[in-house]
Write a protein that binds this DNA or RNA. Structure first.
Lengths: 127, 127
DNA sequence: GCTTGACTTAGAGTGGACTCCAGAATGTAA
DNA sequence: TTACATTCTGGAGTCCACTCTAAGTCAAGC
């Protein structure tokens, strides 16, 4: 796949794909004789994983470190696994923080609702 | 309350508190005769709300707009409410995105677990 | 052969949210 | 009263994650 196809498939800009590559998130992308990138299926899977992690806010640098470990082979499996566990813990924290905001918003939205209804009610009565 | 106390209470840096003020998130902070800020209980409540929303990623600019509406009085209640509803929807989206990442991580962590266990098992047998 | 469009690079620019700094004034404790 | 901490202001600097620009290469179609 060429870069524009990958870009469309995953809805990630071409610039961003090249940026990720420079940042070490997509090592070893093959290029044809005239220097044009050719993404393999494995590259695409990686793009998908990156997209998923980035959308949850995992920093590019940490992702880069994780992928570097992947490239080093089996002996880094344990370390990679513990990175993922760590990341998972952070995301759970983040999710819960967001949930608390949602709860606060629900509370406030309800107050507005009651206030506005009370007002309307009041208008009704004075009619 | 003085700025350093507010800073400690909510774990927000003094610089950030002043930055929020400049950005319109904390309008009308009173200052004493020598120009030193004195935060009222209402200011503090606002700081807490800001902290909650910011920790969930609500942009400073939107927060600033919301607070400006608050300052305009009752006739903006409807608009404020719909801003909160909108924000709530975005946070639910965000929370779900993070959940999908967590699910993906769970899946991967499990694969590592199985792989590592299989390896260990193998070592056991060859002993 | 020439244009068009997709690709390449290195490097500069942007936006958001802080974070730090210099220099001045004010407050507090020994 | 001397020293040290805290506050103030305006503005500069930083970090992250892109995003854009300029200048160039290459393949396909007319």
């Amino acid at each position: 796949m060429k870069i524009s196809e990958v870009s469309k498939k995953y809805d990630i800009s071409i610039d961003t794909l090249r940026y990720y590559e420079k940042a070490g998130l997509l090592p070893n992308i093959k290029k044809n004789s005239s220097g044009i990138r050719e993404y393999t299926d494995m590259d695409c899977e990686r793009v998908e994983f990156i997209k998923c992690m980035r959308s949850a806010g995992m920093p590019v640098e940490r992702l880069s470190k994780y992928i570097a470990l992947c490239e080093q082979g089996e002996e880094t499996a344990e370390e990679r696994r513990s990175m993922l566990i760590q990341q998972r813990a952070e995301l759970i924290e983040k999710r819960d923080t967001i949930q608390r905001s949602i709860d606060k918003l629900d509370y406030k939205i309800n107050i507005y609702y009651n206030t506005l209804r009370a007002k309307e009610n009041c208008l009704h009565k004075t009619k």
